[in-house]
Simulated scan of single mutants.
Amino acid sequence: MLYRTIPKTGDKLSILGYGCMRLPEKDGQIDEERATRQLRYAIDHGVNYVDTAWSYHMGESEPFVGRALLDGYREKVRLATKLPSWLVETPEDMDYYLDAQLAKLQTDHIDYYLIHVLNTTEKLAKMEACGLTEFLDSAKKAGKIINAGFSFHGPAEDFAPIVDAYPWEFCQIQYNILDEQNQAGTKGLEYAAGKGLGVIIMEPLRGGNLTDPVPPAVADIWDSSPVQRTPAEWALRWVWNHPEVTVVLSGMNREEHIEENIRTAHEAHPDSLSDAERTIIGVATEKYRELMKVGCTGCQYCMPCPSGVDIPLCFELYNNKYMFKNPDAEMFYVVRLSGVLSNSPEQFASQCVQCMECLEKCPQHIDIPALLEIIVREMEGEGFEERKQMARDMFVK
């Protein structure tokens, strides 16, 4: 297993981290015996960073991780979990959730504690008004948390101000071959690393969608390479090739995937891909983009929408449905756009009033209003209100 160092602390972390959001299930619940065996296997083979959160598996991930890390495994890892920021309304809430998480995880400290979905400067301001700085400083002083960070899924322009708002030790961003320019992107990765933050990467395989299934046109590109690798290995090696990356999280839930990822993590040094290998990855990435329903780059020029529609996110989720044949695409659409994760207003495509302001702003000349109408028909059809209620039940206090 290769390890990289958090610049501010000297902490050496395995480049492969274990994400506990997609654990194996049986009868709708975490398959505890199998999941424990998988997690401990990864730790026994060098993984020393384990990531969970309050909301994962409907609140059952943290208690599971606490049990799975018994028998001496807690001492072998750096444990990460996240404050559910969308549930915070008062300073006391932050203390309540941290103490509850310590109890669930059966530990007296969290090694890497993140403010979950700290996506915008507005959200940051709300958290600061609730005493975020004082909370983090106090929790550190008490030894309840060791390192403070945040996870980010927001617009690129809000990333640097959040990085600069507190002396964070690390941050967590989405980054993969399709997201070089989306969200924090490469610019954000380099900015955070330049400030001395460790950078934890989530969704390196877009939730597994870059590997299962692979569009046939993309599979042909991988097959044409003189160097033969699985799609997962290509995608992970691309992320690890960036020296600014500290840890890449993988939500591993199949034994063969765990074994493959561990093998790759023994070899994936920074700057180790050849020019030819980077070219192959670039061709595959462009083919993915060709397969997208909407040629949106996530540049955000169309934002803000006067009616509150998150236009780039609507397009991203719509593209994902067709590129990756995700059977849960409509549910992801509701969760991401309903505001339940950030305690913010809804941002659905159906809120578009055809004001046409976005048409003048889009550098890709996308017919945004017409496409939003299509998205309404395909993503907000039968069962839409039921999915919204499910999202509220999952995430609203």
Results as ranks from 00 to 15, higher is better:
D44A: 08
P226I: 08
D220T: 05
D310L: 07
E380Y: 01
Q300Y: 11
K144V: 03
D275L: 13
R206V: 08
D271G: 04
L178N: 08
K140G: 10
S307N: 15
V50S: 00
V247C: 11
D99Y: 05
I43F: 11
A165W: 00
E380K: 01
A103N: 08
A53P: 02
S338T: 05
F395Q: 00
I368A: 11
V199S: 10
L359N: 07
K104T: 01
N320T: 00
V163K: 01
N253D: 12
A160K: 14
V335K: 02
V47Q: 10
T52D: 10
Y301W: 14
N326M: 10
P161A: 13
D328E: 14
K144N: 09
Q181F: 09
R37P: 00
N261V: 06
K388R: 14
H45T: 07
T120I: 11
A219E: 11
K325Y: 05
N319W: 01
P226C: 04
A219H: 04
H116R: 06
I366V: 09
T9C: 06
A232D: 06
I374T: 13
M58F: 12
V309F: 09
S85Y: 04
P161H: 09
R40G: 04
A184V: 05
R34D: 08
E25L: 11
M331K: 12
Y112I: 00
V334T: 12
G143L: 07
A217N: 10
D27M: 10
A156H: 08
L2Y: 00
A192W: 04
E330Q: 14
L291A: 07
T230M: 11
P226A: 08
A391Y: 01
V245W: 00
L372T: 00
P369R: 00
Y318R: 03
P304N: 08
T9V: 04
E277H: 04
L23E: 06
L102G: 01
P91A: 06
A160D: 12
F332V: 07
C355F: 05
L189F: 14
M127E: 14
V88T: 09
Q172C: 13
L273H: 01
F64A: 09
N119F: 06
P231Y: 04
G196K: 04
P91T: 01
Y56K: 02
V309Y: 10
N241D: 15
L13V: 06
L197M: 14
N253S: 15
V50E: 02
G149K: 00
T5R: 15
Q347T: 09
G308Q: 00
M21P: 00
V396N: 08
A217R: 13
K195G: 06
L136I: 15
R78A: 13
V334W: 05
Q351N: 08
V396F: 11
K8P: 03
E286R: 13
E256N: 15
N326Q: 09
G66N: 13
G143A: 11
P363E: 10
P216G: 03
D93F: 04
L132V: 03
N48L: 13
L98Y: 00
N261D: 12
V376T: 15
L313S: 12
E382S: 12
I162E: 08
F384P: 05
V218H: 02
I145T: 02
L98S: 03
V65M: 14
N48K: 05
A265H: 05
L16K: 02
D275W: 06
L189T: 11
G59N: 05
K8H: 03
G131S: 10
V163Q: 12
V88F: 08
E290T: 07
G10S: 02
K26V: 15
